[in-house]
């Protein structure tokens, strides 16, 4: 295809992506270098029946004028990055000096909002992704051996957790594990603990969110693996059987190697999607015990305590750096593959 034609075909799509994906990445960085204006103060003489005194008042007109003139706020350099709500450099240092051992140090670090969110985001990403692969693989093996008539309905039901809106899916589970809901009440009865509440304990909340994550994403891995299983060459399996391979050995040495590209594909998509975990935290109202990077950005923008563009921008830039770290191995791999093919 001629370069000119290519350009015109791709143009609308490219413009949309540059305007609303590439530019915002730049603008969050600029935004993160500024912080909100403080209120402009003025001194006025207020005179009452008991004489005059000087009072400090907020100059409303001047404050709003300043906001209008410089909506970004005032320049703060990397100040927002290093403050307590983000990388918390000074807090980290003082915690290091004050802590007798590692566990005290970690618990102090965990109390800083950014590290708290980072801890949950990473835990969620790196626990949910392998579990999704595992569960999806076993469901695929199971469904593959069902009689043909049952496969369709099974796939239909299996797709539901994935297709449903994440916020709605998490709400549905949240209502069930409520202490007055079916699962919550059953657990209380099973463990004989009438005060058991899944919402109250941070550890249980984390487990709950992870279970939700696996429930939501396992269908995706299942469908991809299931399609992959249809393409496993039957000759190879037959040959392995003639050589006396057991069922386990056939799965391990014939089926699994055939599925490796799919494992890479699912892991890539899952890492990207799990790293931005956000809706379940809103749905489960879990912010007291688990926050994610996406959630703290959302909280800065629409949390109800006002909008903090500088703070949201700084967290966004740090999140984007995190995504970059996750993606680099994949990009290098794809790059090498492409160059090998080109040669």
């Amino acid at each position: 295809m001629k370069n000119r034609t290519f350009f015109w075909f791709i143009l609308p799509s490219l413009v949309a992506m540059v305007l609303f994906i590439a530019l915002p990445i730049g603008s969050v960085f600029i935004q993160s270098l500024y912080i909100e204006h403080g209120a402009v103060l003025k001194e006025v003489k207020s005179c009452g029946p008991f004489g005059c005194k000087d009072e400090v008042q907020i100059d409303v007109a001047a404050t709003s004028q300043l906001k209008e003139e410089k909506p970004l706020g005032k320049f703060n350099g990397f100040g927002t990055y290093t403050n307590r709500n983000h990388l918390a450099v000074t807090e980290l240092k003082s915690a290091w000096n004050d802590s007798a051992n590692w566990s005290i140090y970690f618990s102090k670090v965990y109390n800083l909002p950014f590290y708290r969110a980072l801890a949950f985001t990473l835990t969620y990403t790196f626990i949910v992704t392998p579990l999704v692969l595992l569960l999806g693989f076993f469901i695929a093996l199971g469904v593959n051996s069902l009689p043909k008539k049952l496969k369709g309905p099974t796939i239909f039901v299996s797709l539901l957790p994935m297709i449903v809106t994440p916020l709605i899916g998490s709400l549905i589970l949240f209502w069930m594990i409520d202490s007055k809901g079916i699962l919550g009440a059953s657990l209380q009865w099973l463990l004989d603990d009438p005060n058991l509440s899944l919402k109250a304990s941070p550890a249980l909340t984390w487990i709950m969110l992870i279970i939700y994550g696996v429930w939501h994403s396992a269908p995706f891995a299942f469908i991809v693996f299931y399609a992959g299983l249809q393409t496993v060459p039957s000759e190879t399996i037959e040959a392995a059987m003639i050589d006396g391979a057991s069922r386990w050995e056939r799965t391990r040495y014939v089926v699994l190697p055939h599925l490796v590209p799919l494992i890479v594909f699912i892991s890539l998509i899952q890492l990207m999607d799990n790293f931005r975990v956000f809706e379940p935290i809103v749905g489960f109202s879990a912010q007291a015990s688990a926050t994610s990077l996406s959630w703290i950005i959302y909280n800065d923008l629409a949390g109800g305590e006002g909008t903090f563009f500088g703070s949201a921008g700084a967290t966004s830039v740090l999140t984007i750096l995190g995504v970059a770290v996750l993606l680099i191995p994949v990009l290098i791999r794809t790059w090498n593959d492409f160059n090998r093919k080109a040669v």
Binding site: F20, I21, L23, P24, I25, G26, S27, V28, Q31, M272, F275, R276, F278, L293, S294, I297, Y298, D300, L301, F309, A312, G313, S316, T319, I320, V323, L326, L327
Partner: peptide, 10 residues
Amino acid sequence: AMPHITLVSG
């Protein structure tokens, strides 16, 4: 791969 909320904050 960009988390949507980071774009929205821009």
